[in-house]
Computed example of a mutant assay.
Amino acid sequence: MTTIKKMQITFDCAQPVRVARFWCEVLGYVIPDGAADDESWSAASDPTGEGPRLYFQRVPEGKVVKNRVHIDVRVGTGLVGDERFAVLQAEADRLMKLGATHVLTQRADDENESCITLQDIEGNEFCVD
């Protein structure tokens, strides 16, 4: 039997503290003590300890291609149709006021529920679903 381990998700970025603050606003996370003291890195942690830690490290190169891994911000769980879409759109609107950029809105069809793809303040794609 394997042991469950803690994990963190790491972002390469140009401005670690700025990106960490953005994700804290998105997820209700906090910046741990000391994580904003050095501009070369930062972090964001779930204050309940339930969610994964996010780590942000400065790299010299900018983002060039689509992420191969992305975060899904799950706000519409259990909702369907127009009710789900309204909740997704409200959250996307809130995040765009924080600096997120709209990429794609996918409305529900016969097989899939609605989803809105955004980019964070440094262009990393994520979904509001």
Rank of each mutant, 00 (worst) to 15 (best):
R18T: 09
I121V: 07
R58N: 08
D37S: 12
A43N: 01
D12C: 13
R94K: 07
L79S: 09
G34R: 01
A35S: 14
M7W: 00
R18F: 11
R21Q: 11
M7A: 04
P52Q: 02
S42P: 04
M7S: 06
V87Y: 03
R68A: 14
I71L: 07
Q15A: 14
T105S: 09
V69A: 14
V59F: 11
I71E: 05
N124V: 11
F11K: 01
I71M: 08
F56M: 04
P16F: 07
N67K: 05
A14C: 11
E39N: 15
N112D: 10
E91G: 09
R53S: 15
K63F: 07
D72I: 00
A108G: 05
L98N: 10
E61Q: 14
I9A: 09
E111C: 08
A86F: 04
D120V: 02
P60A: 12
S114E: 00
A36C: 11
M7E: 03
V17C: 10
H70N: 15
A100C: 00
A20R: 09
M96F: 06
I71A: 13
Y29M: 01
L95W: 01
V26A: 00
D38S: 08
R58A: 08
R94Y: 09
P32E: 10
V59N: 03
F85G: 04
E83M: 06
A44C: 08
V103M: 03
N67D: 15
L104R: 10
A14D: 12
V73D: 05
I4E: 02
R68K: 15
F85S: 12
C13W: 00
I116K: 04
R53A: 15
Q57I: 09
V26S: 04
A14R: 11
F11D: 00
G34T: 06
H70D: 14
V30D: 07
F85T: 08
D46R: 00
